[in-house]
């Protein structure tokens, strides 16, 4: 689209957070895969190639989850809060642009898990009457400030819900 892309990027510290959670989730998936192979091994005599394939899949998955996807995702993530609207851009393979008029915003939350807290980050949740939009990792001070500014800008028109 020709529309100007939203300008603000999310915090660079999102990368280590995504990598760590990527490591955790891919270890779980690889563990499950390994167990399945192990169980099959008991019943069938698999050729070595299956194990090679298993290792390749595991390594690819790991690289994708820990290196590639966080990088692309960070590069694409943009947001911008203006007086009358909030605009977001996010995605990895499918890139989405979202437009939320300020008058539709019902409330704003900031949430922080243990990982985000360690990196002084927070996620911002913007809720309308029907949708919830999620900015995954911004600096905690900025998140607080955004929460304040959005909730003061959002004067919901009672008639519209």
């Amino acid at each position: 689209m020709d529309f100007p892309v939203p300008q603000k990027r999310i915090s660079k510290r999102a990368l280590p957070v995504w990598r760590i959670s990527g490591i955790i989730s891919s270890l779980i998936v690889i563990g499950i895969l390994a167990t399945i192979l192990f169980i099959i091994h008991f019943f069938l005599n698999l050729s070595e190639w299956w194990y090679v394939l298993g290792v390749i899949v595991a390594v690819l998955y790991f690289i994708l989850k820990v290196v590639v996807i966080p990088n692309i995702r960070w590069k694409i993530w943009r947001y911008e809060v203006r007086e009358k609207e909030v605009e977001l851009q996010h995605g990895v393979f499918v890139i989405s642009r979202t437009l939320i008029p300020m008058v539709r915003v019902q409330h704003v939350d900031t949430v922080q898990g243990p990982l985000l807290r360690r990196y002084r980050l927070a996620s911002l949740l913007i809720s309308t009457a029907a949708t919830v939009h999620h900015i995954p990792a911004i600096d905690i001070d900025e998140a607080d400030q955004l929460r304040h500014s959005i909730s003061s800008l959002a004067k919901v028109d009672e008639e519209d819900v």
Binding site: M1, F93, I95, S96, T98, L99, I100, R104, T128, T131
Partner: peptide, 28 residues
Amino acid sequence: NRIQSLEASSTWIQKRKQLSSIHSTVKS
């Protein structure tokens, strides 16, 4: 005034073909 948010999405390939999908949400 009933549309809560509007979203447009496209993959890299669709972008090259200048295609885009539209998603609108109303409260229900």
